Simulated assay, not measured.
Amino acid sequence: MNIPKLQMQSTPGRIGLRINKPEQTIKQHQVEQSIQQPKADMKIEQKPGKITIDQTNAWHNLDLKSVMARTEELVGIAKNFWMEGLARVSREGDELMRIENGGNPIAEQAKRNTGYDFTFQPGGRPTYELVQVSYQPGEAQIDIQRREPIIKNKKRDPEHHYRPGNVDVSMEQMPDLKIDWKV
């Protein structure tokens, strides 16, 4: 006995895809920037210094003195002479008081007191150590006005191009199923 057989034949379906990729470009331009730095305003005011030169001692060393200095010096010398003269007169009085002791005190005193011993000593040379110099510096006033920098920026937007992609779907082969009975 023959039993019929079932025979199946299938053809698979095939899908065809055509893909167009998307394209994207982004371009960023550099920013345009300018920076300027103005100079600061600066004002300097310098007061002059004060110099003092005292050469009085150098002139005194040369024996060139002012009237006041010369007077003070002569007063000191005169005071010494007066004190020496006072001592001499006192001593001579004591000698005269003892005249009875012998000798000739009046003649001896006259001999001692005749003549005058006078010596003049000119001054030396002026030296730099005798000149007194003092300096007082003047103050400096410095005024600075700061200036801010000038910064300018020009923003540039990016260039953006986009082309979307797509997918085309097609049936390249249709599916098929054949069923047969074979005896």
Rank of each mutant, 00 (worst) to 15 (best):
G123S: 07
Q173E: 13
T56L: 05
T52L: 02
A110K: 10
N113P: 03
H160W: 14
Y135P: 01
K111N: 13
V133F: 09
G93K: 06
R91G: 09
A69V: 11
K178A: 05
W181I: 06
R156T: 06
K178W: 00
P122I: 06
P164C: 02
L64V: 15
N113E: 12
I53F: 00
P149V: 04
Q37E: 07
L177E: 02
G165L: 00
P38H: 07
R156L: 09
S66T: 15
Q28I: 10
W181N: 05
I44N: 06
E139I: 08
G123R: 04
Q28F: 06
M8W: 08
K39M: 09
T71S: 09
W82P: 05
N113S: 11
D168K: 14
E45T: 12
K79M: 13
I99Y: 12
E129Y: 05
V167H: 02
K178P: 01
K27D: 15
P137H: 06
E92A: 11
D63L: 08
A78W: 08
K50E: 05
M1K: 14
P164A: 11
H29A: 15
Q145D: 01
G76C: 04
T25H: 12
P137D: 06
T114Q: 15
L130C: 05
I3V: 14
L74P: 01
R88P: 01
Q9V: 11
A87Q: 09
L177S: 09
L74I: 03
R14I: 09
I99W: 10
K65G: 04
Y135L: 03
E108C: 05
A107P: 03
Q30M: 13
